[in-house]
Amino acid sequence: MSIKHNTEEYDNPVLYDKENNRYTDDIPFLQKWASKAEGPILDIACGTGRATIPLAKSSHKIVGIDSHEGMLNEAKKKASKMKLPIKWIQQDCTKLELNIKTDFAFSVGNSFQHFLKNEDQDGLFSSVNRHLFQNGIFIFNTRFPSAEELLQPETEEHWYTYIDIDTQHKVDVSTIAKYDALNQLQYYTTIRKYKDETNHIVNEVSTNITLRYVYPKEMERMLANHGFEVIQIYQDWQENLITNDSYSMIFVCKKVSESCK
């Protein structure tokens, strides 16, 4: 499946914000690195600007890039209401041509997992490398491919419940996962059950998404091939180091040479 046809989870940007805007754990970490940067910062696969906007509010000059027109349009609306001077660019992140050089770029929200093929991953890292100054920093995160994460039962499992901010009604979110070990792809179906004030289901919507998993040593070799040195790998945004029990991998990388691709 191409990344361009893997967007069901993002075709409703307002719903995306309802379910994801409460997540801010990565913002202080990004703010720390942004404070060391000069010139424009690149938020790659920025979505609706969940991380872009807080950094802009802290007076950082920042550019948000994404391939999804609907997500970018929502980001533009929010930034415009706040009168934030963010530059938004719609481009394929595997083939970036920005006419910008920076010493800090990041991609958060596990966006890396949407680059499903080897050539997609190579294109991303090559694109980022081209737009970084020597010794520039690139930070990104992706889920850790633990046995618990990959070998989930292929049955519907409750994930979490939240209250819709508009209706004040409960939404139960569950998933069905199937792992393709040969291609390192996890196929997810997300099921949202919307309930009324009496707790009865009044609507049910399913969406599909495919995510790529990469192992730590595999990632280190890939980054090295694209001119990056891994400075550190954390398991969370509080800078705890990765372990066998980690859920996430946060890579802090430095450009040390040009990409081989």
Rank of each mutant, 00 (worst) to 15 (best):
T167H: 04
P216K: 09
T243M: 10
P28V: 06
L30H: 01
T198Q: 13
L151H: 12
D172L: 15
K95W: 00
Y179C: 11
Q121K: 13
P85S: 09
L98H: 05
T7A: 10
T52P: 12
V205F: 05
V214H: 12
P145Y: 04
I201T: 07
E197P: 00
G70Q: 13
T189G: 08
P216Q: 06
E218G: 03
D245C: 00
I233C: 00
Q152W: 03
A45H: 00
Y162V: 13
S246Q: 06
T24R: 15
E204A: 13
F104W: 05
S206Y: 02
N183W: 14
N110R: 05
V173H: 14
Q91L: 07
E239Y: 04
H226G: 06
K87T: 11
H131N: 00
L98D: 00
F133S: 07
T210G: 04
R143F: 04
F125D: 06
N99S: 14
G70W: 10
P153W: 07
I41C: 13
H131E: 00
H226N: 09
H169C: 14
E19G: 05
M222Q: 14
F106G: 06
H114E: 12
T161I: 09
V214T: 14
N20W: 09
I191G: 02
H131L: 04
D26K: 07
S146E: 14
T190Q: 12
E8W: 03
E69H: 07
D17T: 03
F144A: 11
I233T: 01
A79I: 09
I89R: 01
K261R: 04
K81C: 14
A181F: 15
T94V: 03
Q31T: 02
P145N: 12
Q91P: 08
Y10Q: 11
Q134F: 14
P13C: 09
F104K: 10
T198D: 11
Y187G: 06
M249E: 03
S127R: 04
T198C: 02
T161G: 01
W33Q: 06
I163G: 08
D25F: 01
